[in-house]
Design a protein around this nucleic acid. Structure first.
Lengths: 235, 235
DNA sequence: GCTTGTGAAACGTTTCACAGCA
DNA sequence: TGCTGTGAAACGTTTCACAAGC
């Protein structure tokens, strides 16, 4: 950013700097969420400012990386001071899009689906589960989750409920064998993004982002690293 | 890897090619798990061979990337044919270290911990939950998980059980507020790696690998991408 | 003093393109 | 022909190092 007559103070409204995803490295976007999580913990602890060095330290990153990541989206820091915790939280939420509430549905009212419903903590992050679906006739109509619970709907009602409740994100908590078919149903129903807990890769239109969380994959990565360590230790 | 008088059939013992983690890109190791998952699905479907192009396609990768990733660990392919599915599965399991069983403990017998215990599917992947811990006195001694269930132990017994049952991996399913303290207890008990479901970064010795799965982080990434898409669409 | 923001250099990863082989 | 394995080129990300500001 050369001679661009940079304004001295932070402008009142958000995006004079590019808020565009364009040309921002994907790893940087992933770290934004980690910064936000850490900053929220700092805010709760009463911390008012933090430097890129300190923020990087708790996350195992360099100070330069923290600054670069944030600089992709604007100038949020104060030289000599660091970053104001509350200000940076607001900026990150705005960038990530979690300064508003996202309505979420869960498909699959099994063990994992129920656990997700019982997890408080999404709410604070801007995500609200508003409906639950399952294809098991024995479950339809019964209730799951914290009192008063959610009524379990059949998959057939998905499109209707998505439109009515303005649902943007679908959480897939179904067996791998039906994951693709269920993903198709989510897309057809108008869901804009999918968080997939089934151990399967999904084929969806490219404008529908998918995040797959496969517990076995994570365990395998740990196994690999422990095995490698043991080889290293024996040298 | 030039004139290395490559044997035609799989050698009886494992590592003529380097099994070392050294100099293998981390992203490549992550993809190994995805290849394995896909290959296991292919095997179940009766598929006998697959080319790097076909394997890449289902995962959204190029053929060259698939070949390069695998070539870091040896020459597993057959020119003109592709890769034999059963053979490559065996190789990947050996590389990842999941050709043996890993004993796993779960800390936190809440909603998520219980859901994990009820999840069949780890077993096939080489991971076996063998013990459950919680610090809630009301839960100690009761049983959770599929019949006959696991007796819930107090955290104090962790070191003893880890040694006795040869546990290598600990799964952290506790609230963020006690995640660090619980991680410390896991490390002190001799656990070699941690799968962390608490939304918090953990500070552990660097020889203890940690994989953190934070659902809110994944949802935020989806929110970001959906927001970016909407900006794109309006141009 | 300390800290940010940022070009440029260093490093790492992916893709290309082709020799070699079935 | 079809496919792997692999150097080399292209591309992307991180780190360095420093001018500018508090």
């Amino acid at each position: 950013m050369p001679a661009d007559e940079t304004p001295d103070q932070v402008p009142a409204s958000l995006p004079p700097p590019a808020n565009r995803a364009e040309s921002v490295p994907e790893p940087a976007v992933r770290r934004l969420s980690l910064y936000l999580r850490e900053l929220e913990a700092l805010l709760a602890a009463g911390r008012e400012t933090i430097s890129s060095k300190q923020l990087g330290e708790v996350l195992g990153l360099t100070d330069a990386q923290v600054r670069k990541d944030l600089a992709y989206f604007g100038q949020f820091g104060h030289p000599g001071i660091g970053y104001r915790v509350d200000e940076l939280i607001a900026r990150l939420r705005s960038i990530l899009g979690t300064d508003r509430t996202w309505n979420v549905l869960v498909v699959g009212a099994g063990h994992l689906g129920s656990a997700l419903l019982n997890y408080r903590g999404f709410g604070k992050k801007g995500f609200q589960v508003v409906a639950v679906f399952d294809n098991d006739p024995a479950k339809i109509g019964s209730r799951v989750g914290p009192e008063p619970g959610f009524e379990i709907y059949p998959l057939e009602r998905m499109a209707e409920v998505v439109a009515q409740s303005d649902i943007q994100i679908g959480v897939l908590a179904v067996p791998a064998a039906v994951a693709q078919a269920t993903a198709n149903a989510l897309v057809a129903a108008g869901v804009k993004a999918i968080l997939n807990f089934a151990p399967a890769s999904l084929n969806v239109p490219e404008n529908v982002p998918v995040a797959t969380v496969d517990l076995a994959v994570h365990l395998e990565q740990l196994a690999f690293r422990v095995s490698a360590d043991q080889v290293d230790a024996s040298k």
